[in-house]
Structure formats: C-alpha cells, structure tokens
Design a protein around this nucleic acid. Sequence first.
DNA 1: AGGGTTTTTT
Length: 1025
Amino acid sequence: MDDRARQLRRRLRACSCEAASTLGKRLRGETGSLRELEAAVRRAELRASERRAAAPRAALDLSLPIAAKAEEIEAALRERPALVVCGETGSGKSTQLPLICLRAGRGLRGLIGHTQPRRIAARTISRRLAEEMGVELGREVGFKVRFDDSTNPRTYIKVMTDGVLLAELRRDRGLLAYDTIIIDEAHERSLNIDFLLGYLKRLLDRRRDLRVVVTSATLDPEKLSRHFDGAPVIEVSGRMYPVEVRYRPPESGAEVEPTRPIVDAVEEAAALGPGDVLVFLPGEREIREATAALRESGGAAAKGAEVLPLYARLSAADQLRAFQSHERRRIILATNVAETSVTVPGVHYVVDTGLARISRYGSRSRVQGLEIEPISRASADQRAGRCGRVADGVCIRLYAEDDYQHRVLFTDPEIVRSNLAGVLLRMKALRLGEPREFPFVDPPSPRRIRDAHDALVELGAIDAEGKLTEIGRELATVPVDPRLGRMILAGASEGSLREVLIIAACLASRDPRERPLEARDRADAAHASFADPSSDFLALLRIWEESRRQAAELSARKYRKWCGDSFLSWRGLREWEDLHEQLGRIVRGLGYRQNDKPAGYDAVHQALLAGLLGNIGLRGERYEYQGAHGAEFFLHPGSGLFERKPRWVMAAEMVRTDRPYARMVAGIRPEWLETLGAHLLERSYSTPSWDDRAAAPVVVERVALYGLRLPSKRRVLYGQINPAHAREIFLRQGLVEGAFRPHADFVEHNERMILETRRLEAKARRRDLQGEAGARFDFFDRRVPAHVWSGKSFDRWRHKAEAQHPRLLFMCEQDLIVWAEELPSEVAFPDAVQIAGDRRELEYHYEPGEPDDGVVLQLPLAAFADLDEAKLDWLVPGLVRDRAVEMLRGLPKEQRRAIGPVPSVVEEFLASGPDPALPLVTSLASFVGRSKGIEIRAADLRARAVPGHLRPKLVVTGPDGAVLAEGRDLLELKQRVSGEVEDAINAGQSEVPPRGGEVLGLWRGADLDDRPLFRGGGHGIPGDH
DNA sequence: AGGGTTTTTT
C-alpha cells in the first residue's frame, strides 16, 4: 500500500494543485479503497491531460522590451519560488508576463492569477491578453472584479483585482486554484498588496509548487527580493522617451501670489512648442485657484488653450473632456488621479508643484489626516514620466533640485499610514496569528496594531483578549469597512436593515453627488432638496428612493437626464445599487431579513451609531464639537446640520484637512450611547452618602464615553462598586452611629453605650466619642463579614447567624465568648501582630487542673514588649473590659493585687512570672461561672507559659474543680458554652450592665481604690457609686 | 464659520 500510495501521490502532484491537496489528504488518511482512489487519480489525470492539450499557444510580442528577458524569466520560474520583475512603463510586463508563465508550463496544474490594483486595469489587461492570444475573453483568459466574473473552468489566465484574490483566501486558504500568482504594480503598496505579499511569503513555505511573480517599478526592488528570501530580480527596460527635468524653485524673499509660479511654468512649457500641459496640484481648491489665475493671466499659453480640471470627484462627463482629442492646446490641472489611475494622452509637458494631499491616520487623534505634503522622489519621477509617453518631454518642477534629492525615496506604504481595523479583522478571521509576527514587507507599528485592536473592541468584533466574537465572525464575511459592516448587523437587530443597507452601501462607494467647479451653487441647490436638518444619512436615503422612483418611471435616456439635472452621477448611482445588491445577498446569506415596514429615525440611527461610537461629538461653547479622547472637530460646511448643530452628533467620517471636520453627520440621543456603548463606558462616582431608604451608602454614578460625559445620572448602591469601603461606611454610619435601625437587641445596647460614653466623656473630658466609636467599629468589623454593606445584607446575614448561634453575636454579654474564641487567632490582635517583628511567640496556657489543659493564647512577643497603656485596648477591648471590671469588683482585695499592670506583667513573664493573660482568662472563667450561678475566685485560676505550640484548648472549671466546659475545638466549645450562657441569661441570672470608659490596666500589687482604672477619671470603676 | 488625494473587497 505504501509504495502504491506514494506513486499515486506523485501522479497526483502532476495533475492539479487542488486534486493533489484533496485526494492527497484522502490518500494519507486512507479513506476509501485503493481502487477507488486510483480511479479518482485517473480521472484527475484525464482532466489534466485535456487541460494541457487545450492550453493556448502564447506568442510573445517581440517588439516589447520584456521579450528579450523571456528566457531568463522562464528559467527563474522553473528554479525559484519567487521572482521580482522590475520594469518601467511601456515594458509590456503586464500583458507579457502571464504569457511567459504559460510558455514556462505554468497555468496547467492551476490558474495563472494576475492581480491589478484597479478594476479598470484588470478589465483592459484581460481584454488585451485575449486579443494577443487570439482567444475569446471569458474562456482561456478571464477577469474577475467585484460584481463581474468572466472566468470558467477552461480559464488559464485569470486577471483580477488584488481585492478579489484576497477575498478568495477565505475559501481557499492555500490558493489551490492557482499554480502561479503575479502581483502586478506591487510598488503601489496598497493595503491589499502588502497583505498579499505577507501571505504569499508564508504560503510559499507550504506550497513548493507555487510560483509568485511580483512586478515593481521602483528604484528599490531589493526590498521585495529580500522579502522573498533573495528572489532573483529581473530588470526590464521601459520604452519611454527621454524627459528633460527643469527646476524652478520659488525665489526666496519675493512675495508673489501662490499661483504665479504655476502660470509662469505653463508659459515656459508652452513656449517650447505645441503639446498639452499637465499640471500636478494637491487638491481641488488649488485647481480652482490655478484655473482662475491662468485664465486671468492673459499669457500667450492660456490664450489659445483650453484649461481643464481633472480630479476623481469630477463628473464623468467633465473627466472625459481631458481625454478627448482636441485641436487647441490643453492645459490640464490635475490631482494625483493623473499620476497612476488615469493616463492623459498627448502630454508633452508636466508642471509639478511637488505637493499632494496624503491620507495619514493619526494614531493619537484617531482621525484620518488629509494634509498637503511634499511628494516622494518615486512619485515625482512618476509624474515626470507622464510626459514621456508619446515623445520627448519636459518636466518643470516648482522646487529645487536639492529639494528633490533630499526627499524620501518612496511614499510610505498604506499599511503604515492607515487604520488597520479591517486588516486585523481579516487576520483574525483567517487565524493568521499575531500581527507582529506576520511577515509584512513594512511592519506596521505596535501602536497601529493596538489602535486597530481597540477599534475592533469598540465594534464588539473581538473581546478583550483579542478573540473573534460572533459579531466579528459575521463582520469578516461582509466586504466593507468593519464599521459599515457593524452598522448593517446592528440594522438587522434594530429592525432597520433595509434603510441601513442603503446607507452603508453608499458610504462604502463614492458619493453620487456631483459638484462641478463652475456649477457648485446649482449643484448645492439641487442636493439641498434631499437634505435633512438632523441627519445627513437621511439625505442618502432620499436620494436612493427618489432615484429608484425616477428610474422606474422614466425612460433610460430621461433618467440619465434627471441624474444630470439633479447633479447625481449616473455611474455613482449604479455602483451604489450594485454594492447594495451584493451586500443584501450576503446579509440574506447570514440569515437576516430586511424590514418590510419603514424604520423610524431612532432605529436607523441607532444602528448607524453601533459602527460610529468612536465618532461622536458634543457641541462645545462655540462652533466646535468635543469629540472622543478630547479631540475637537467642526461640522463640515457641506453637512445639512451645519446651520442647526445639534448637541450630540455622530459622524461617518472624521477627516483633518485644514481643520478637523466631521462629514456625514446626524444628531443622536446620548442615551443610545449608554446601551450601544455599554462595553466602553467609563464610570465615575460621587462621594458616598448614607441613604435611609436603602439602609446603605449610595453614590451618584456618572458615565462618559471616550471622555465625553453623558448627561444621565443614576443613584447606585455603593456596595456594588466598592464593597469594602461600603461596608466600612455601613458599619460606621449604619451600625455604630445608628443610622440603620434594625430590630435587634444590640441596638438598644449600642445606644446605651453611646449615652454612657457621652456621660463619661463629659466627666473624663479626654475620652472622646470618636475613640469609643472606633472601638465599637472594631467590634463590628471583627464580626460582620466582608460581603455585608447594606441594611438588607446585614439583616440577611444576622438572621442566619443568629439562627445558628441564638442571640450570640450581638448580645453584649456574649462578647466575652466570641472574644475568647478569637483570642488565639491574629484577628483579635491585628496591631499586636503587626508590631511583632521578630515573631517569637508566647503561649499562654490556662491550667485549671492538669498541665496542657486550658486556653492557649499565641501572642507575638514583640507586641508585649512594645505594649503601653494605649495599647491595652487590644488586650481588654470594649465590652470584655467591662466584664473583667465587673468581675474584679467582686474579688477580694488581695486577689485583685494578684493581677498586675500588663507591661510589668510582661516583664515578669519574661522572668517567668505570672501569666499576663490572666485577667482575660479570669474574666472568662468568672463569667461562665457566674452565668451558671457558681462563684469562681480569681485565686482558683492559674496560668503559666508553656513552651512549644499547643493546640488551643479551653477548660472552664468551677472552684470545686468541676469542669463546666472543655474542648479543643473552640468553635464547638463556644457553641456549647453559649447555649449555657443563653440559658442563664434567659433565666435572668446574668445581667451585665454595659459600661463605657476606658480601663487603663489591672494593677497587681496596687489597690484598686488607689490606682485609677479610668484614664483621667480617677473615680474608680464606673457604676461604683 | 465655510469645503476632500486615491483605490478596493466571495
């Protein structure tokens, strides 16, 4: 089987790339019997031999310069995976390269794919190829552009736009339909081209049979060669006439009108002889000014000449005038259209201002910039070359030679100066991994990639980790800018798909509204009839509906006339319709239905907003708007909202020309931003305040989007935002200060505490309410769990806790027991633990009878070493202290003397003295004893230090040695004891009056009557009188 | 208070 399979695979590889891939997989996986597979291979071989036999003969046009290099190219195609053909205009590379590939035996196992940057070029080149080969277009040679596909199974050479090839990647990751790919005009370095160049580099590692030919007109083919691991570079000479370049820099110091040098240069050119003059200018406004200047100059050149503007937005008819032959001399004032997209025939002279508007996406501002820049040397050369196509030419540059020499070699490729959201989305959808690892010829900066990432997050296309979401997956199937795609998807969910499809299709194609230079006012008036004062998008909808209505009612000829009268481009409208239809098909494929009922303003504009969240603005003091991230912008004067200026707007486009402008604008409601931009909202909160009805702290929440504050305000439970802080406030204001009044016993107790403290404070002066409140805050803080921050959650927790330990937690009497439980842990002594630097531990052991029994207290030694009176609270805090005092009051004098001041107890302990924890243990035991009606005397209680760690154990005995309670599990013990305590309380046997004040210490060897127990008071134990 | 280079996408 192995040998046989290997042989079949070999045979397959000779057939077709697709068959080799699909059948090869079956062979490897051994799906199907060998016999079946063999039959499949034979069928593939038959198809392959038919294809070979039917291959068209390709005769080269030997008059073209590239023919001289045909053999060299063929050899390279056989030996190397990639090659770079560097050819000037007129070298014939676009038509001859596919033919050379065919001669080299390419195009049999798969198509020869040939990409062009523009649709029109793809069409004309395929037509010329078919002519030269003497075949019918749409058979051996086909083309495929958006909306139009003429290829079929018999096609060998497929000419297409690079966008088409890119789109095919989604279905054909390995580009198995092709065995050769020619990327023509790679020097234009569009986003599409750069993406393809990166993708093909990777693909060549996987597909050894694939050949890639890249053509470039650049001065620097080495870069592309390096990209393809040292691909051979084959230079082909062009067939151009020499162009003389003259430099006419502006004279320094002389103040002249900006149009003066242009007029002078045109005069100079015209004086050289007959022939048309092509002037390159950066934009429409400059064209307008130069036109006026030339007409007014009255110079010899202008007099007999026809001055024509040429730029992309010009109406088709006006553009055509530049191409029609004419007897008079023509002076064509053009933008960059004439540099690559359009070739003006018969140009003998070029005047180059050296300027162009270049689109650059501003990373910081997130606005597309469109500012006038000096062009690159490559661009200047291309402009000069425009007059060497028919005869010797002269190019007059309105800048110095030195200036030219110092300019950048090439215009930055698009990938480093545009918004990469679409590219990133495509990479995610194709699962191409990390963008920074993708082999771009010129890698975009990490910042650009992050911007693109943010943009996709804004659209909900990827999540925070960068993973494609469901929305993202759908967006990747819609062939428009992701923002427009997002509108469409939102339209589907808002019930406004019908309207949004129309609007998005228009935004994706060129605006059909025409505005000829000399009829701008009339055009504006015609367009005004469609305008809406609150939405420019509605104007598009009206144009669409009116145009559809007219098309249905009028004859084709009359409809065209209506288009002209309305200053609408017939071709533009067609493009819009085509795109609308295509998008409609795709959306239907995704399972979305267009709404039958017309959607209202809100439904339409909320859908649009879903794609334009980054382009919102709030009207400022004057005419400007505050945009995202603190940017400022102005409404474009062409907007229907220009007069009215709604408070909140969104814009389809933000472009910086002379100033930042928002184009295509509509008013929005800020509430929409809260729902549509929920994933982007920035929230801020006021200072929390107590709310009686909520029985919890609340805050006022304000939201902002990209730094723009939305008007809405909401009251929010503070605990939902900052539970820890909310809890602190709840404890302090709600529980300690009593703003929250639950139905519980401890409330009354608290109140008595406060009253008592106030009374004492008046007496003691030095003890303030705050200090006492602090103690009580600690009391609650130790008990109330972290998730409780409101009256509601407090009650819920308390009821549960009290069901388990009835009345335990918040009856002051139980304090002692809870506290005893906490003693061994660090909870009761947070400060003490913090003070403990050296971590030596002391263990205190209550030993009523046998050794090793009793309460073991683990306290850091250092805590004791540092202990001063102020820290005594940690040892005898709050209510426990009262309890201890209560107990001591009942002790005989000599027994009281047995208990010394804590600091000295520590010293004594270190000299193996008595237990400093004695008062605590004493109080505990005493309390338990009393609650059971048994008298326990302090003298009965002993404590000693025990080295090493002992498991905490509590044994409470009475004076007769009877064990009242014991256990190592303190929790369990506590429950047992507490039950007993509760019984005692219920029986009215234990009534502990709550007390405030501060116990300074329990003094050993001192008479309680001599030494004040209360700081500053000097009156002995409270309640004594 | 006042106006934009260009191209492309199953």
